[in-house]
Simulated scan of single mutants.
Amino acid sequence: MDFLELEAPIKARLEAGVGESVKVFTAPDLDGVAAGNRPAPAVDLLYRGYRPKDGNAAGGFAVIEQTWWTVIAVRNRRHVASGNAARAEAGPIAGAVIKSLLGWAPTGAKAMAIAPAPQAGYDAGYFYLPIAWTTQLNVRTDACASS
């Protein structure tokens, strides 16, 4: 089992949903990219952890809820003080992300559900708008505790 196996199908779903003009990146894609040189507009897909939901350790079974963030990144320096231009550019991309993922179930997982996310932010001319998602995986193993 690959614990992060959902990354590839989620990325593919986002790429199809946001169109060719918006790039979709995962953490390895962004490794080494300087803050001021990152491509935009883009959607960053980031694994943000898990929590056990249910299971039976002796039976080799667990339900795990994973959290994924989709962070819309745009660079727009017009109206920097208000951020209006950047928000206007990020809004339709956010809509496409939500339309792509909300209720969609990656193979082997439950439907993606929207979840609480951190605040949007500005940095070095970029506007970042995070949207958080959860999904659940059923994990089974052949290993069972012996009595």
Rank of each mutant, 00 (worst) to 15 (best):
M1G: 00
M1E: 01
M1L: 01
D2E: 13
D2G: 07
F3N: 07
F3D: 04
L4A: 10
L6Y: 11
L6Q: 11
L6D: 08
E7G: 00
A8W: 11
K11I: 01
A12E: 06
A12F: 06
A12Q: 11
L14N: 07
L14F: 06
E15Q: 14
E15Y: 09
E15N: 08
G19Q: 14
G19H: 11
S21N: 14
S21C: 07
S21D: 15
V22R: 00
K23V: 08
V24F: 00
V24H: 01
F25Y: 15
T26F: 01
A27F: 14
A27I: 12
P28Y: 09
P28I: 12
D29E: 10
L30G: 01
L30F: 05
L30W: 05
V33W: 03
V33D: 01
A34G: 06
A34K: 14
A35W: 09
A35Y: 06
G36L: 08
R38F: 03
P39W: 07
V43N: 03
D44G: 03
L45H: 05
L45S: 00
L46V: 07
L46S: 00
R48G: 02
G49A: 11
Y50C: 07
Y50M: 06
R51S: 15
P52M: 13
K53D: 13
D54P: 04
G55K: 15
N56A: 04
N56Y: 04
G59L: 13
F61I: 10
F61M: 11
A62H: 08
V63M: 13
V63N: 07
E65L: 09
T70D: 01
A73N: 07
A73V: 09
V74P: 01
V74L: 06
V74G: 04
R77H: 11
R78F: 15
H79A: 15
V80E: 15
V80C: 10
A85D: 10
A86L: 02
R87Y: 10
A88N: 13
A88L: 14
A88M: 12
A90W: 00
G91D: 12
I93Q: 02
V97N: 01
V97T: 00
I98S: 14
I98R: 15
K99H: 12
K99I: 10
K99P: 08
S100P: 01
S100C: 01
L101V: 02
L101Q: 03
L101W: 05
L102N: 07
G103S: 08
T107G: 12
G108S: 00
G108W: 03
G108R: 04
A109C: 15
A109Q: 13
K110V: 11
K110S: 15
A113C: 08
A113M: 11
A113G: 03
P116R: 11
A117T: 09
Q119R: 13
Y122L: 10
D123N: 14
D123E: 13
D123G: 12
G125Q: 06
Y126C: 04
Y128Q: 06
L129D: 02
A132D: 04
W133N: 01
T134V: 12
L137I: 04
L137H: 10
N138I: 13
V139C: 10
R140V: 09
T141W: 12
A143Q: 15
C144D: 07
C144H: 11
C144P: 01
